[in-house]
């Protein structure tokens, strides 16, 4: 297990080291001004100096992103269950669910702000909207793509609709839900940051989205970069957490078919 982790991590860490080196080399070679592109070391130093502000921003953004993700899991699963019950509903409503994916969130975010006011609620709402679609599509696929043998088994045993949903379709959709969650986790963080960019203005304590915008416009590019790095790490952390959930809690689902 340890060996496998080391084998997986080593190439990723090597690639990161190369990227940081190239970044540093660019700054040094072309003598780029720090307010345009600070060096990796100055970003690190600025991040350490502003660690309390960064920690608070990470906490607020994480809270909004996780809330948005949980909301999208709940609402998306319910929508998927409704979709799975009738082909007519699925065909009729799915094109409108696609709108969630195609509508530019930057265009709709001010509207959200107008509807629910600035603050955490709007940020969660935007994060929720961005992360909803992968949950709907994946869970719907999990609920409907049932092995015909399983369907026949339930039919042979005269299972009613509720039994079929609870004992077959929902358990069958769990691995698909987790796959959707992996995509949505990253999107939820992006949604929260975009949300904070628009809706986090009037809050006393602000998240990473507002911090990035504020620091870069006030020429504190190194702190802004540190906030960007923290957003990336937050997205990666959520992605890995969902992956961990899959490999530990869902081991019994993980036969050769998944």
């Amino acid at each position: 297990m340890k060996n496998r982790l080391a084998n997986n991590l080593s190439p990723a860490l090597a690639a990161l080291s190369v990227a940081i080196f190239v970044w540093w080399l660019l700054v040094v070679t072309f003598d780029i001004k720090p307010y345009l592109l600070p060096s990796p070391w100055s970003v690190m130093a600025a991040g350490l100096d502003a660690r309390e502000e960064l920690a608070m921003a990470v906490w607020l953004t994480a809270r909004a992103a996780v809330s948005g993700l949980i909301l999208s899991i709940l609402v998306g699963s319910v929508i998927a269950i409704v979709f799975s019950q009738s082909r007519w509903i699925r065909v009729g409503c799915f094109p409108y669910a696609v709108l969630l994916q195609t509508v530019p969130i930057v265009a709709i975010a001010p509207l959200m702000l107008f509807w629910s006011g600035p603050g955490l609620r709007s940020v969660i709402l935007i994060s929720f909207m961005v992360s909803l679609f992968p949950i709907i599509t994946n869970v719907t696929a999990g609920l409907t793509a049932i092995d015909p043998g399983f369907s026949a088994l339930f039919k042979l045993n005269q299972a009613n609709r509720l039994q079929r949903i609870c004992k077959l379709q929902i358990p069958h959709a769990i691995p698909h839900l987790v796959t959707g969650m992996r995509t949505s986790a990253g999107l939820a963080v992006i949604g929260a940051i975009v949300g904070e960019y628009f809706a986090g203005v009037s809050t006393v304590k602000h998240g990473l989205g507002f911090m990035v915008a504020q620091k870069i416009t006030s020429m504190q590019t190194d702190v802004g970069f540190a906030a960007v790095v923290m957003s990336v790490l937050l997205g990666a952390f959520l992605f890995l957490a969902v992956g961990l959930l899959r490999s530990t809690v869902l081991t019994k689902w993980c036969d050769s078919r998944h």
Partner: peptide, 17 residues
């Protein structure tokens, strides 16, 4: 009313969870 009929499929068709 529902006579008991058992069916053995080509695949074992066991629910993996």
């Amino acid at each position: 009313r529902h006579p008991q009929v058992g069916f053995i499929f080509q695949d074992p068709t066991l629910l993996p969870w």
